[in-house]
Computed example of a mutant assay.
Amino acid sequence: MPENVRTVEQLHVILERDKNKIYQRINEVEDKHDTNYADLKLILTTFIETQKPLSKMVESIDNELKKLNSNVTDITRRVDKVEGKVTAHDEVLEKRSNANTTIIVAVIGSITTFGSAALGFSQIFFK
Results as ranks from 00 to 15, higher is better:
Asn4Leu: 03
Asn4Tyr: 09
Val5Trp: 06
Arg6Lys: 11
Thr7Leu: 00
Leu11Gly: 06
Leu11Gln: 02
Ile14Met: 04
Glu16Gln: 08
Arg17Met: 08
Arg17Val: 07
Arg17Pro: 01
Lys19Gln: 14
Lys19Pro: 06
Asn20Leu: 12
Tyr23Thr: 10
Gln24Gly: 10
Arg25Tyr: 11
Ile26Arg: 09
Asn27Phe: 11
Asn27Gln: 11
Glu30Cys: 06
Asp31Thr: 05
Asp31Glu: 12
Asp31Gln: 12
Lys32Met: 13
Lys32Phe: 11
Lys32Gly: 04
Tyr37Thr: 15
Asp39Lys: 13
Asp39Pro: 07
Leu42Met: 11
Ile43Phe: 13
Ile43Asn: 09
Phe47Leu: 09
Glu49Cys: 09
Thr50Glu: 04
Gln51Asp: 00
Gln51Leu: 07
Pro53His: 02
Leu54Ala: 04
Ser55Ala: 10
Ser55Gly: 11
Met57Ser: 10
Val58Pro: 00
Ser60Tyr: 13
Ile61Pro: 02
Asp62Tyr: 09
Asp62Cys: 13
Asn63Asp: 15
Glu64Lys: 15
Glu64Met: 15
Leu65Pro: 03
Lys66Val: 15
Lys67Gly: 12
Leu68Lys: 15
Leu68Ala: 15
Ser70Ala: 10
Asn71Cys: 10
Thr73Met: 06
Thr73Asn: 07
Thr73Lys: 07
Thr73Arg: 06
Asp74Val: 08
Asp74Gly: 01
Ile75Trp: 03
Ile75Glu: 03
Thr76Val: 01
Arg77Trp: 03
Arg78Phe: 02
Arg78Cys: 02
Arg78Ile: 01
Arg78Asp: 03
Lys81Thr: 00
Val82Pro: 00
Glu83Pro: 03
Glu83Ser: 14
Gly84Val: 00
Gly84Ala: 04
Lys85Ser: 06
Lys85Val: 05
Lys85Met: 10
Val86Gly: 02
Ala88Met: 06
Ala88Trp: 07
Ala88Gly: 02
His89Asn: 04
His89Glu: 09
His89Arg: 12
Asp90Glu: 10
Asp90Ala: 08
Glu91Thr: 02
Leu93Val: 07
Glu94Tyr: 07
Lys95Glu: 01
Lys95Val: 04
Arg96Trp: 12
Arg96Ser: 12
Arg96Asn: 13
Ser97Pro: 01
Ser97Phe: 05
Ser97Arg: 05
Ala99Trp: 04
Ala99Met: 05
Ala99Ile: 03
Asn100Met: 09
Thr102Cys: 02
Val105Met: 05
Ala106Thr: 00
Ala106His: 01
Val107Ile: 07
Ser110Glu: 12
Ile111Pro: 01
Ile111Lys: 07
Ile111Tyr: 08
Thr113His: 04
Phe114Arg: 04
Phe114Val: 03
Ser116Leu: 14
Ala117Thr: 08
Gly120Glu: 11
Ser122Lys: 13
Ser122Asn: 10
Ile124Val: 15
Phe125Asn: 13
Phe125Val: 14
Phe125Met: 15
Lys127Gly: 14
Lys127Phe: 14
